[in-house]
Design a protein around this nucleic acid. Structure first.
Lengths: 360, 360
DNA sequence: CTGAAAGCGCTTACAG
DNA sequence: CTGAAAGCGCTTACAG
């Protein structure tokens, strides 16, 4: 059943009352052209914000568009432009809260633009990883894709997207690409803040559990942490320098190793919150109390950080804002591809809660 | 730079060597028609699995399609069919792990089909809630949308989608629609299992913190819990019957109320895991140990359930499978709209961990 | 069972 | 600054 409004709209114009046009579906560019008494091409110019339209004509067309709530059909535009009104989010991040936050940020930017967000989780180690993405991009021709860590760090992926002429933005803790394609997060600075925080509380035996070597962020956080310790004249002892996998289970394992050392650390900085919660578990198992026997600081400030007990001190990166900025950049590339984009940078902040205190 | 393979492919055919056709972009239906020596309409029939093609012709066309890795342009098909090759996921569920799980389930079903998943978080209480969805559906014409709780429970939304002739599947704990549009979860059965579990451990003073009344699942879980208690000859005392908001903070608040009662419960069943973690917090604050002083059971079996300490007993719903089945149903509706779909049902299972034990 | 024509709703050169 | 024609890559009636 077609909405009655369309029928009345179309017949409201000077059309012969004898043969009213059938009202099927929403209005098209032809309807708007007729109603505004211009050619469809002019309507198209207005839609695409071409400067080659008189102010008067533009105003008239825009009024008709607004009045009838006309929205150009994205399928038709996409076919003609060879670009879908879709932004892809390609990720292999295992943290649900990270993923959802980034999605919501991207959607913040896309709201009201007519662009939709298509999600593409993937496995960077899968043999057909690049084939899948090639198929997606070739088939759908998205207006752009957002690459958060760690897919953002994949040089072959970036090459592929460049080859396919698919705009992309890489969110990463190191600058891997030109400015317009980069959202830079100063992971190292956040980790340094964590080191200074623990040192200033009076800790001297401070350990670190870093993420997997396949994540640049893991390296950056470790590097920043060591730099922060150095600022306070401290070093990261080799025995206190552990590598895990950004997962809960791996955090438990490495924390257990640290806490059963002959001389155990009084503080542990984990490369993300999941591992930090793993540290909680290991401490509990060994009868150690947080923060009395052990201070813990995480990274990401995931929801779980404020839900565990005691509440976890953590380094916060504004994930949602990062997603928003990345999507905005892609929209900008889609409309004005030539304008050189500025480098966008985010610096994380330490959120001190109850899991870090002076050593007993 | 066009991929060289296309050029050679196109010129490989009996085309005059003098004027080779320009090779721009991927192959189209016309290329395939020429290569298979049929009309484009026949290629279209093969793509759309029309029965009106000889086996021989079909085989020949399919061979050419496979050989060249041809994929029909979804924009063009969408324009002609008035349906985008998109499946929407419309949700207002606040739990990241729930959302990501459901997305991944839907993507399991869409993998290899050429359909993409578009995510549409929303706020059911926002004044323009329905307008936003109307705009989305009218503009993009998705092949279907998945509605998990609580948007699945919104009658106005279902009416709107029916009016717009947009196929949908509702995932809900009560049957709100016809079979083909329903994925039914027996939330009540899972809650009953939790009640029986606690009763069989020897608990008699058992409390419940339910979700908000705007979620049918909250009602179903409470109903099932009461039924489970009744199976063991127990009742849910009025003072032990609390309503919260499916959030951590609301869980803390109601748990605190329960645990400061003159006669406090020895077990609490929370309507979801977030609130159960809130119960942990309240118990800790009051110096109560889990499970010695208090047993706790949650619902959802979110990742956090196995990460908190002690590990949380919880009722597990196979969210990912639910998302997959919902998407499969929509694909089925898109291809064969007339086939009556069966009702799909999921029954949750209790995962007993360390947070529930016999009362001391 | 197969095909030539027209159309889906837009945009891109090309004129004027 | 504006428009008529052709085209994007498919599918839907309509013939045969």
């Amino acid at each position: 059943m077609p909405p009655p409004s369309h029928k009345s709209l179309r017949n409201g114009l000077a059309s012969p009352p004898v043969a009213p046009e059938p009202a099927r579906g929403p209005l098209t560019i032809n309807d708007i052209a007729r109603l505004a008494d211009v050619s469809k091409k002019t309507v198209s110019r207005v839609i695409n914000k071409s400067p080659l339209v008189t102010e008067e004509t533009r105003a008239r067309v825009e009024a008709v568009i607004r009045e009838h709530g006309y929205e150009p059909n994205p399928q038709a535009r996409g076919l003609a432009l060879r670009r879908a009104f879709l932004i892809g989010l390609i990720y292999d991040n295992p943290s649900p809260s990270y993923v959802v936050n980034m999605q919501h940020g991207a959607l913040d930017a896309l709201a009201g633009t007519g662009f939709e967000l298509v999600v593409r989780p993937c496995d960077r180690r899968a043999p057909d990883f690049l084939d899948e993405i090639r198929a997606f991009v070739t088939r759908q021709r998205p207006a752009g894709v957002i690459l958060p860590p760690s897919v953002s760090e994949d040089p072959a992926l970036a090459r592929l997207l460049a080859e396919l002429e698919c705009p992309y933005v890489r969110i990463a803790s190191v600058k891997l690409d030109r400015k317009a394609r980069t959202v830079l997060t100063h992971d190292a600075a956040g980790a340094a803040a964590a080191a200074v925080h623990l040192a200033d509380l009076g800790h001297r035996r401070i350990a670190h559990i870093s993420g997997p070597s396949t994540f640049r962020s893991a390296h950056e956080r470790r590097r920043g942490f060591i730099a922060g310790l150095a600022e306070r004249g401290l070093e990261l002892a080799e025995a206190y320098d552990k590598v895990a996998g950004y997962t809960y289970a791996s955090g438990v394992e490495q924390a257990r190793a640290l806490l059963t050392l002959p001389v155990r650390p009084t503080a542990i900085f984990a490369g993300n919150d999941e591992m930090a919660v793993g540290v909680y578990r290991a401490a509990h198992d060994l009868g150690l109390s947080i923060p009395d026997d052990l201070s813990v600081v995480g990274y990401d400030d995931a929801p779980i950080a404020s839900q565990v007990w005691p509440a976890l001190s953590s380094v916060r990166l504004p994930i949602r804002d990062m997603g928003k900025v990345a999507a905005e950049r892609l929209l900008q590339l889609a409309t004005a591809p030539d304008e050189a984009g500025e480098l966008v940078e985010f610096t994380p902040t330490l959120v001190a809660r109850d899991s870090s205190a002076a050593p007993r």
